[in-house]
């Protein structure tokens, strides 16, 4: 699943470590999600979207949208 975490993170000047701390997950987790190697659970995906203050669709794209 594609995502815009790197872009959203960059716009806010956050490192992976900063985002990981805000989400209370490991930096490895942020890296794996950001690079598309791991798709987060729905609760974690919502938390990521809320941290950035955007709708979940603005962060993740499953490639099946209209």
């Amino acid at each position: 699943m594609k995502n815009k975490i790197k872009q959203l993170r960059g716009e806010r000047g956050w490192s992976q470590a900063v985002l990981a701390e805000k989400l209370d997950v490991s930096r490895q987790s942020v890296n794996a999600i950001e690079t598309g190697r791991y798709d987060p659970s729905l609760p974690l995906a919502f938390r990521i979207a809320r941290i950035f203050g955007v709708p979940i669709e603005a962060v993740f794209d499953d490639g099946d949208g209209a």
């Binding site: 209370d24 997950v25 490991s26 791991y38 987060p40 974690l44």
Partner: peptide, 8 residues
């Protein structure tokens, strides 16, 4: 106790 990716 660990996060979901590390648990995976």
């Amino acid at each position: 106790e660990i996060d979901e990716f590390l648990r995976f």
